[in-house]
Design a protein around this nucleic acid. Structure first.
Length: 196
DNA sequence: CGGTTTTGACCGGCGC
DNA sequence: GCGCCGGTCAAAACCG
């Protein structure tokens, strides 16, 4: 089977100018609705965190599992999208980025779904899978296949409640969605079905 | 055949 | 300095 994509993200604080962006927003809203809006209120925005802090934060899955609250934790750290970084060179060359403290914005939210094959219209390529501590389910790492698009995402589900899928997005898509809204609606239906 | 998944190795950061 | 840990690479397998 193919797990190509997942729920969409789009945390664009800027107003959507393209229709694609609009779709994104809608989708996000969808997710919110699908989850508990109340939960979404817990959405945190942390500014000025260091990378490691981000990791810690992101790592606090137990927090999510423990308190059934704080579903989506977001670490917004003065994003500048300066993650040009690697990608450029396919080789394992040691590229000095110069910046040591790069903070990348991460946006996490959880979705109640039995399938992690939710399609958000973007093309993803899986590049890794790691076992998560205190969790029987592995964490999957995906990257947007669009050239020049460095958006990454992780998907993992809670060992407690395997009905919950936590997705963490990192980066911004600088290109429109490839697939038609047709598909989008299809997914919409899917999510609605599963959320019942 | 080309793109994607799989999967173990590898790497850098951090704590001890 | 060493080992753990989260994240990534990359080669081979896999699939439509």
């Amino acid at each position: 089977m193919n797990n190509n994509s997942d729920p969409v993200f789009s945390y664009s604080s800027s107003s959507p100018s393209s229709s694609a962006a609009a779709v994104n927003s809608s989708y996000l809203t969808l997710n919110m609705v699908n989850n508990n809006p109340a939960d979404y209120n817990n959405y945190h925005e942390q500014m000025g965190l260091m990378e490691k802090d981000l990791q810690k934060y992101e790592n606090s899955e137990e927090m999510v599992g423990g308190h059934h609250v704080s579903p989506s934790s977001s670490s917004l750290a003065h994003g500048d999208g300066s993650q040009l970084i690697m990608a450029a060179a396919a080789g394992k060359t040691n590229i000095r980025k110069g910046e040591k403290k790069i903070r990348k914005p991460k946006h996490a939210f959880q979705t109640r779904s039995q399938v992690d094959i939710l399609d958000d219209g973007y093309r993803w390529r899986k590049y890794g899978q790691k076992a998560v501590k205190n969790n029987k389910f592995p964490r999957n790492y995906y990257r947007c296949t669009h050239q020049g698009c460095n958006v990454k995402k992780q998907v993992q589900r809670l060992s407690n409640d395997d009905g919950i899928v936590v997705t963490t997005y990192e980066g911004t898509h600088s290109h429109p969605i490839e697939k038609s809204t047709d598909n989008f609606e299809h997914i919409l239906t899917q999510m609605q079905i599963y959320s019942r």
